[in-house]
């Protein structure tokens, strides 16, 4: 393809090709601190290609695909090319990664132990991980936590943090404009802006650690905390995994161990500040 970039995030190497220069140059500058080995053999190929011949030039429209793709993926405007590239990489991981159990979860680490947070889009798990990453925790990822099938450790996948709508302001205020990407207004998921993880999160992206606490955060409710039964945790984590079925019995064994060994709580919170206070308290008590 005309424009390309090879990018390493955690254990995965992506070769991203684009029909237009902008998505690749934006990626290259935002991921400047990550390895960009030009002559690497990639785990996945991502393609940002025009939805049709004319759509390369006139009202450019991106079809996101690659080694793994969805035939009915919605086309995206070139103005959202950075988001398209991120979605292309996520798609490859979600559909093609087999070396760890993928959990749709954010994760942060402190003192060699990992806090995993899982929930639907809008639950606040990305924002919470981003904020904790600024307050003494090491940010490990906001989208996928990789559970090692043999050791039971969580491995980082610290791509850019994708912040939506109101979370943008909260986090931008904390980290400053220098670590924020361009504002992508009015995407299918509302306004999106990416945040660069701190340099230590990138430098240590090869280092995993054992999980010590699992949280099911829920933003926008009065402060509350509940215990969650192991059967429910297990079911929710299988639903939060895109490769649980594909990995078969080793995934069942690893997930069973995770559910048995890692204490868990569901927490509701009205603001980020209250959430952080709750998390720090729970970490003291349980982890």
């Amino acid at each position: 393809m005309r424009h390309q970039l090879t990018l390493r995030i955690g254990p995965a190497t992506f070769r991203i090709g684009s029909a237009w220069p902008a998505p690749v140059s934006q990626l290259a500058s935002l991921y400047a601190a990550y390895p960009q080995p030009a002559d690497a053999i990639a785990d996945f190929t991502v393609r940002l290609q025009p939805t049709s011949l004319a759509r390369r030039f006139i009202r450019p429209s991106i079809f996101i695909t690659g080694d793994h793709g969805l035939a009915d993926a919605a086309p995206m405007s070139l103005a959202h090319g950075l988001l398209a590239a991120e979605m292309g990489m996520n798609l490859q991981m979600a559909l093609g990664w087999r070396r760890h159990l993928l959990l749709h979860a954010s994760s942060v680490e402190k003192d060699g132990r990992v806090l995993v947070m899982t929930g639907e889009s809008g639950s606040g798990k990305s924002t919470l991980a981003a904020l904790l990453g600024e307050r003494g925790w090491r940010f490990m990822g906001d989208e996928f936590a990789l559970l090692d099938l043999d050791s039971g450790a969580i491995l980082p996948f610290p791509r850019l943090v994708s912040l939506k709508n109101r979370a943008i302001e909260v986090v931008a205020g904390e980290v400053g404009a220098g670590r924020m990407g361009p504002l992508l207004a009015a995407t299918a998921k509302g306004d999106i802006r990416h945040m660069l993880p701190r340099n230590d999160a990138v430098a240590r992206m090869g280092q995993g650690a054992m999980p010590a606490l699992l949280l099911f955060p829920r933003f926008g409710h009065a402060a509350d905390m509940r215990a969650v039964g192991q059967a429910e945790i297990f079911m929710r984590l299988t639903q939060a995994s895109t490769n649980y079925v594909a990995l078969g019995e080793p995934a069942f064994t690893a997930l069973t161990r995770f559910v048995r060994d890692v204490p868990a709580r569901a927490i509701d919170f009205p603001t980020g500040e209250e959430a952080i206070a709750m998390v720090e308290r729970l970490w003291e008590d349980m982890a």
């Binding site: 070769r15 002559d39 690497a40 053999i41 990639a42 190929t45 080694d67 793994h68």
Partner: peptide
Amino acid sequence: LDASGWNGLIAAARA
């Protein structure tokens, strides 16, 4: 094969 050869081979084999 060099790296670019391998990338092409793997992409074509997957497709």
